[in-house]
Computed example of a mutant assay.
Amino acid sequence: MQHAQVARYQRLKLLLIFIVFAAPMAAAWGMVKWGVGIPFGHKAHGEVHVAAPNLNEWPLANEPESLGEAWTLAFDCLSDCEQRKDELWRLHRALGREAPRLQRLRIGGAEHALPGELVTRWQEPPSWYSQGAIWLMDPMGNPALVFNEQTETTDILDDIRHLFKVNHH
């Protein structure tokens, strides 16, 4: 009688060990099969399909001298953009220790540049140009995202932080 209890206890113990190791696999399979409990990925606030060419091909009046190594936040300033210029400067500062990974390129507006800002102007606005647009270019000069005038600065900052996180040095 006691031998039967020990055997049953051993089987129960073996079954519990099996459940402990099989449960995560079953849960993962269920998550994939039914899409339950899977965190949603980051959704970009900017438009991913950017019509702009590589930054080297932009019809700029003067080639900014220090383009290279960093991501570039290029923004149009043909219309009145004092507020946007200030917001993007604050966005740049909000990146904290990641700030050196970004540079701002203002196209148009006053010659006076804010700290960390490169200034140029269009030779003539290209066909893909959009007034008030903000383009985020990768370190190679390829367009990554484009934002329109209505995009909130906090949303742009969110997208930049996400891109920096997934694109390490």
Score class of each variant (00 low, 15 high):
residue 37 G to M: 05
residue 38 I to A: 04
residue 38 I to E: 06
residue 40 F to C: 15
residue 40 F to V: 15
residue 42 H to C: 00
residue 46 G to I: 03
residue 49 H to D: 00
residue 52 A to L: 11
residue 54 N to T: 08
residue 57 E to D: 15
residue 57 E to S: 13
residue 58 W to E: 05
residue 59 P to D: 09
residue 59 P to N: 06
residue 61 A to G: 09
residue 62 N to G: 05
residue 64 P to M: 04
residue 69 E to G: 01
residue 70 A to R: 10
residue 70 A to S: 15
residue 71 W to N: 03
residue 73 L to R: 07
residue 78 L to K: 15
residue 87 E to I: 00
residue 88 L to C: 11
residue 88 L to Y: 14
residue 89 W to A: 12
residue 90 R to A: 14
residue 91 L to P: 09
residue 92 H to C: 13
residue 93 R to W: 03
residue 96 G to K: 12
residue 98 E to H: 11
residue 99 A to V: 00
residue 101 R to H: 14
residue 102 L to P: 01
residue 103 Q to Y: 06
residue 103 Q to S: 12
residue 103 Q to E: 15
residue 110 A to C: 09
residue 110 A to P: 07
residue 110 A to G: 04
residue 111 E to F: 08
residue 113 A to Y: 01
residue 114 L to Y: 00
residue 116 G to P: 01
residue 119 V to C: 12
residue 119 V to S: 07
residue 119 V to N: 09
residue 120 T to C: 05
residue 123 Q to Y: 00
residue 125 P to N: 06
residue 125 P to C: 02
residue 129 Y to T: 00
residue 131 Q to D: 09
residue 134 I to S: 11
residue 136 L to H: 07
residue 136 L to E: 10
residue 137 M to Y: 11
residue 138 D to V: 06
residue 138 D to F: 15
residue 142 N to F: 14
residue 143 P to L: 09
residue 144 A to G: 03
residue 145 L to D: 00
residue 147 F to W: 07
residue 150 Q to E: 09
residue 151 T to M: 09
residue 158 D to K: 15
residue 160 I to R: 01
residue 160 I to Q: 06
residue 161 R to H: 14
residue 162 H to V: 01
residue 162 H to S: 11
